[in-house]
Simulated assay, not measured.
Amino acid sequence: METERPKVGRKRSEAARKAILRASLELLRERGYGKVTVDAIAERAGVGKQTMYRWWRSKADVVLEALTEEARVAIVDRDSNDLESDLGAFLKATFRLLNPPRALGPVMSGLMAEAQLDPAFGARFGDYIAWRRKSLGAIFQRAAERNELSADADIELLVDMVFGAMWYRLLLDRPISPKFATSLARTATRAARAQKS
């Protein structure tokens, strides 16, 4: 999944891009989403503000790209041949990204709010969400192929259940712990297997 970017200006310097994404994550952890500005990111990264606006449309787009890069590294899908184990590993990796020290849970909430206010950004954030849904859906799909659940199981509904529980806790600032990951994986596995006739 790639976030959409403006197609204007010079080719991006990879070193500058990494400095900007690193600076944005540092500032987000220090100040929170609402208090971070493009000016502050540019200053921390040692680049001009105009450089950032050549490459991204808004602060939200910079943050979304930083979040995407973090997720690519932090959330690695694994196939252990067991639905509950795979779900637990996926959720624990996801929750580690949201909790300290990475502490990107409040950032996700900020991006969700931004997506409600800016339809153009909302579409790009929707692409990120669709990418994460596809990754989770693949875990259920593999289970269906192993006959752990019925071949016609409602995978979209199962994904809604898992991510719905995560987002509910995230938006209400309730704990998203490893214990919750284990419990949610167990509950989702039972629900998935209950669909098997």
Rank of each mutant, 00 (worst) to 15 (best):
A185K: 00
L97Q: 03
L172W: 02
M52N: 03
K196Y: 10
G122Y: 05
L97K: 00
V73C: 01
D118H: 06
S80Q: 06
I20K: 00
R78M: 12
K59N: 04
L149W: 03
K92T: 15
G105S: 07
I20G: 00
K134G: 13
I176C: 10
Y53V: 11
G122K: 07
R10N: 10
R193F: 09
A138N: 10
M1E: 06
A89G: 05
E14D: 09
L67F: 04
L184V: 06
K92G: 07
Q50W: 09
L91K: 00
M1F: 06
M52W: 01
A115I: 08
I155Q: 06
L67R: 00
E148G: 10
P100H: 06
G164V: 11
L27W: 00
L27P: 00
G88I: 07
R142Y: 07
P175H: 08
K179H: 13
K11H: 06
E148R: 06
D154R: 09
L136P: 04
Y53F: 15
E156C: 14
T182R: 11
G88D: 15
F180G: 08
F95Y: 10
T182A: 15
A15H: 02
L98V: 09
R10W: 09
D86G: 04
A188H: 01
E43Y: 05
G9Y: 04
K134C: 14
D152M: 14
R186C: 11
K179W: 11
A103N: 12
K179I: 15
F140W: 08
L158K: 05
R142T: 14
S109E: 11
A138I: 09
L98F: 09
M1Y: 02
K196R: 14
F163M: 15
W167Q: 14
E4D: 09
M112R: 05
Q116A: 15
L158S: 05
L25T: 03
L27A: 01
Q195P: 09
F121C: 10
G164A: 10
E26C: 04
P178Y: 08
I139Y: 00
I176P: 01
D118C: 10
R57Y: 13
R44Y: 08
I139Q: 02
A165G: 09
W55Y: 11
S58N: 10
A40N: 00
T94R: 07
A123S: 12
R193I: 13
A66L: 05
E14Q: 08
P101F: 06
A19D: 06
Q195I: 12
K179T: 15
D154T: 11
G48H: 11
L83D: 04
R12G: 10
K18G: 04
S24A: 14
K134Y: 13
D79P: 02
K18H: 05
V162M: 14
A19L: 08
M112E: 09
R22D: 13
W55D: 07
K35G: 03
A66W: 00
G105Y: 01
W56L: 08
R17I: 12
A74K: 01
S197W: 09
L97N: 00
S13Q: 05
L104Y: 00
V63T: 03
R31E: 10
R174T: 14
V36C: 01
G122W: 07
G105V: 09
E84M: 13
S135A: 15
E145D: 15
E69Q: 07
A192I: 06
